[in-house]
Design a protein around this nucleic acid. Structure first.
Lengths: 180, 180
DNA sequence: CTCTGGTATATCGTCGTGATACATCGCAAC
DNA sequence: GTTGCGATGTATCACGACGATATACCAGAG
């Protein structure tokens, strides 16, 4: 979900598309890349929705910094919208995309919400794991060795994610429930 | 890449869309799902390209098995096209999608090609890993704890995939280079 | 006899990708 | 000093996939 990532980044400071893209890559890591082909349309979309707008071109005054640059900033509506998104604990916050985007802005998220998101995500991933596990148990024998190893590796990855989430949840409960 | 998966499945036996989808899910595991919204358009696309066609409705003879069913089968061109796809060792075979699809049909792939694909995939994943590693080393300190753990977990996953691929490559070299 | 759940096909709007195009800037090498 | 190159910067296009939704038939359970 590019929307949340863009809004989140712009909440830190105004930026133009190119910089946004760089920050995006380093923020989300190789976890998620995003190309210009989706970034620019998204900026237009967010702009039309009124969440962001173009910074005034600081008229006659010296600098004249921008040539082709379009510097975007969050509007008041956009700030509020972002806050709502970061408060959501529905299914959207639990899938790959949604969870990753929210985790990247966890520092701005209320700690009780953080816990709910982590737990929801874990539930989701556990279901996936159980599905894979039983499917492997059921049909695993019939699979050829390559397909089976693909499934096994997939299962291990999902299982590791569950354990990782569990650690995060424990940290959240102990270390952070106290502060604020 | 739905194309290769559909062709691969149809090479085993003719099928209709619904069954194709079920087989697809169990073949690719949760690794990749594919919805009807992409399956049916793909069937049309492959049909237009001449790789598959609709099975003759076994006319007057008793059964009349199909009501709304459309049973698809590989054409001669389709068979050849699939064989070409499974022989490819270009970049397409090394990304997530392309590699996964090909691995699922490794049993039909020549063993020297198998090795090239595994090695190419490993090279690709190693590059990704190195990129993540140096990015973490460079900017890791500045990241907040949540973003950092996201990156670290991502890095570990990619690293595990490299090790997994290495095992597969060794198996392939020892156990299988002899047979055939 | 009705209701549920599996079989079966199909379309729609939305989103992201990868390729491609184009123009400007700073700066290093020659 | 100019030439050329790599980074900066915006933008569009065809394509593939998603998720939701609609429709219809069939079997078996209660």
């Amino acid at each position: 979900m590019l929307e949340i990532a863009v809004l989140g980044l712009l909440s830190e400071s105004p930026m133009h598309g190119y910089e946004l893209r760089k920050r995006l890559s380093s923020l989300l890591g190789t976890f998620r890349a995003f190309s210009y082909g989706s970034l620019y349309p998204t900026l237009r979309r967010l702009s039309e929705a009124g969440w962001i707008d173009e910074e005034a071109p600081l008229d006659a005054s010296s600098a004249r910094s921008r040539r082709g640059k379009r510097v975007y900033q969050l509007t008041a509506d956009g700030k509020e919208h972002l806050a709502e998104l970061l408060r959501e604990v529905g299914p959207d916050a639990f899938d790959d995309e949604g969870f990753g985007a929210r985790l990247a802005f966890f520092a701005q998220t209320r700690s009780d919400i953080r816990l709910q998101i982590l737990e929801g995500r874990r539930r989701r991933v556990e279901e996936q794991r159980d599905g894979m596990r039983s499917s492997l148990a059921r049909t695993g024998e019939r699979l050829d060795r390559y397909t089976r190893t693909l499934h096994e590796h997939g299962l291990e990855s999902v299982d590791r994610e569950v354990r990782w989430l569990t650690e995060l949840i424990e940290d959240e409960r102990s270390g952070h429930s106290a502060e604020k």
